[in-house]
Amino acid sequence: MFVSVENLCFRYRSQEVIHQLCLEIQKGEILSILGSSGSGKSTVLRLLSGLETPNEGSITVAGQTVADDRHFLPPEKRSIGMVFQDYALFPHMTIRKNIEFGLGTWPKKERKPRAEEMLRLVRMEAYKNRYPHELSGGQQQRIALARALAPKPALLLLDEPFSSLDADLQINIRNELHDIIKQTETTTVFVTHDREDAKAIADRIVTMRDGAAHDWDSICMTTERPVEQKEKALQSL
């Protein structure tokens, strides 16, 4: 498996947020984690990316263990790209600088062509010298995607990518997003609370249930997992 998560547990202020989560993702697959707010789905992304340290369990990406009892690879060394819910485009840098930001380890000569390539991919060449606040929400999202994809991450994470967009924009953009990701063949996990979004983009959907957070211990004993993998979820939905 390209990404494998085993028995992942995470507590925040002694409250169980993630309990014994297992996930397996194949290379090039787009996996969607579907869940209501508070179900801990965003926390899964933060754990995958290294922004949070798991209390138990392990995460392996592309054959490398990035987190377990003994190892913790900091986020900057994981080669994981992420599109934040609010995009987090650096306001003091132009679009091109934003995209080049992640190419620090690339040879100087290749940075600019790569940035141009990404701008072409998201069809934003004309905007490269603008600042983030000069773009619309949908445009900002495309730049955030370009920035995350530029360093060729092993894994791409999308956190509620459509939550800050107008509903009518949403349908166009999610198809576009799907095409761009498929074009780059990047393994992707994205979390959403919207079943339609999940269906439109994902190859496979995993549902995450909340509740039982106050009674996690019994769940632990009965080994029921708050996340159930639903194979071929598309048909069943």
Partner: peptide, 12 residues
């Protein structure tokens, strides 16, 4: 989130 975005883009 800006800090986190930068970390994920490979900066220490």
């Amino acid at each position: 989130s800006f800090h986190e975005a930068s970390r994920l883009l490979g900066k220490g």
